[in-house]
Amino acid sequence: MKNPPFIYHRPESLAEALALLAEFGDDAKILAGGQSLLPVMALRLGRPDHVVDIGRIPELLTLDAGPSGTTIGALVRHAEAERSAAIATHAPLVAAAAPHIGHRAIRTRGTLVGSVAHADPAAEMPAVCLALGATMVAASVGGTRLIDAADFHEGYLTTALEPNEILTEIRLPAWPDDAGGAVVEISRRHADYALVGLACIIEVGDGSITGAALAFFGADSTPVRVADAEAVLVGRPPAESAFAAAAEIVSARLDPPSDIHGTANYRKHIAGVLTRRGLAEAAATIGVTA
């Protein structure tokens, strides 16, 4: 189980990297942390002619979390985000996701942006971005374009990125003062990819829910939000009855896949369970006990 041959490029700047992608396009794969790409190559399920290692590009190291929002560059590793006090404060949903992502040795190398670009439907970060309404920054030799998280993931391992583009950073909006968030999931073993997971946010004002985001992963070919369930929460007190109402809608709306690790019915069911658990946990982070 050895990697197939490829031509290796290690650009020193973003411009150089983009020029390589412009030249090789579909024949090239971007290597950052490598925790998704390398298994695929080892299994010879992927055999790019060119590998563009962006690991030494200083522009991509940005990690900037503050009250006005958070910017995560393409080389920010899960381990760095996990340890960052600024992320914990200003992007608590990212912090909540971190411990679920693989094992520590994977988080040492793997990048948040890489996980989003790889687009495994059972991964945490794409759903976190969807819940937060993140903006994806895609760069190419032609310039930079911004993509809404809602438009970014198009299917299984498929995104809106063009072959000549690099996802250079993810921008997260400011975390509201009165919001609680949680990332919950159920997996076969500890730290496996989720059978179903949920990244959720609730905002609470004057004793009732003023806004909610429920982004599920592992429940479809991309992360999905369930708008009806979010809507049913708004205006109700952050309590078990509201969460249960949302859970019921979630289980009815989702159309998850069936595989050897769990049936579709099972996934629908636990999506509801996770809705109740996730919302309760999110509420607890802002001192509301359901």
Partner: peptide, 11 residues
């Protein structure tokens, strides 16, 4: 800690 099988030596 890192997985030596999930890194290219060049990295």
């Amino acid at each position: 800690p890192a997985r030596a099988c999930l890194m290219l030596a060049v990295q």
